[in-house]
């Protein structure tokens, strides 16, 4: 019943071409008079967001200014927790690696995701099967995939290090060497994230009118020119949005790093989230840990708001 209904709507949308927000103004007058119903409809959602996100944020500020624990608030210490956190060289290292991790995570997964989305628009046999298969890294729980990656790379006797030795690269310790561990964690993140970018890019590419390409070809543009001057600008908005979301996902990502390396070796792959978690739950320094999480939050919100404004700018041009 509902399915047939949806089909009818689908036909209506296709046939008549109504549906986007822009066609809907001017809004019906009687709609405005029902503010109370609208408020009631949105109330549960607002309540949840405020209680589960708003209240803890305020409480976190209070906590960051006290020397308490998980059970007691403790005494007011002013900015002492922030000083403690900032004086720790591990903090600065973690901040730097968070930056590296986020930049490679966002642009690595975007490049691969966009490439695959473009490839999957070509004439590929059983395309829908491949589309689903390539989503798997994103669908499979991180706990599972990190276990599999562990089996593949963790010890010198694991398959990938053995393969590297047979290729004459010597003994490669993917998770024991600090630099290599950083690279491995970033590659793992790109592996997990590219399907999301592929979905976003795929949806944007599918919305481009193919006539645009034909017009560009008629004008004598080659494949590269079409990509840079037609395709990329047309999906710019979706691209910015996927960057914003992925930036948030990367900054806030905990399991990818925690499960593969635990932040080691010697803090090499510690990001701010992992550091905050360890400071609170392993070192039991609640104040400094919450201070780290709070500073991280501030940066995350600032970055996403800055990118958010980029979208608006892209809309104007």
């Amino acid at each position: 019943m509902t399915a047939t209904g949806a089909r009818a709507i689908g036909r209506a949308v296709h046939g008549v071409g109504v549906g986007g927000r822009s066609e809907r103004s001017p809004r019906p007058r009687r709609f405005g008079g029902r503010a109370l119903t609208l408020a009631l409809l949105v109330a549960p959602s607002v309540f949840l967001v405020v209680v589960i996100h708003g209240y803890p944020l305020v409480y976190a500020v209070v906590q960051a200014l006290h020397d308490g624990s998980l059970v007691a608030l403790g005494d007011f210490v002013g900015l002492q927790n922030f000083v403690t956190a900032l004086e720790n060289p591990v903090f600065w290292h973690a901040a730097l690696f968070t930056l590296v991790f986020t930049v490679t995570g966002v642009f690595g997964s975007w490049a691969i995701g966009l490439g695959l989305a473009l490839l999957l628009r070509k004439r590929v046999h059983v395309r829908s099967v491949f589309r689903t298969l390539l989503l798997l890294p994103w669908i499979v729980p991180i706990v599972v995939s990190s276990t599999a990656w562990n089996w593949l790379v963790a010890t010198p006797a694991s398959p990938v290090p053995l393969l590297a030795r047979d290729l004459g690269l010597g003994s490669v310790l993917f998770l024991a060497d600090p630099t290599l561990a950083q690279v491995t964690v970033c590659v793992f993140k790109v592996w997990v994230s590219f399907p999301f970018m592929m979905l976003m890019a795929g949806a944007a590419l599918a919305s481009i009118d193919t006539n645009v390409y034909e017009a560009a070809r008629v004008d004598g543009a080659n494949g590269r020119q079409i990509f840079f001057q037609v395709t990329l600008p047309l999906i710019a908005r979706s691209t910015y949005i996927s960057w914003i979301l992925m930036t948030i996902f990367c900054i806030n990502d905990f399991p990818t790093i925690f499960l593969l390396t635990g932040g080691g070796p010697v803090n090499a792959t510690n990001t701010l989230v992992v550091l905050a978690y360890q400071t609170v739950f392993a070192n039991f320094q609640t104040g400094p840990g919450v201070a780290i999480a709070f500073m991280m939050t501030l940066v995350a919100v600032l970055i996403s708001v800055a990118l958010f404004r980029q979208i608006r700018r892209a809309d104007v041009s």
Partner: peptide
């Protein structure tokens, strides 16, 4: 509000929520 909520790291909420 939704956008800001989405960019808040869950780690910053976790400790206060634990106490609550």
């Amino acid at each position: 509000l939704l956008f800001v909520a989405q960019s808040l790291p869950i780690i910053v909420s976790v400790v206060p929520l634990f106490i609550l």
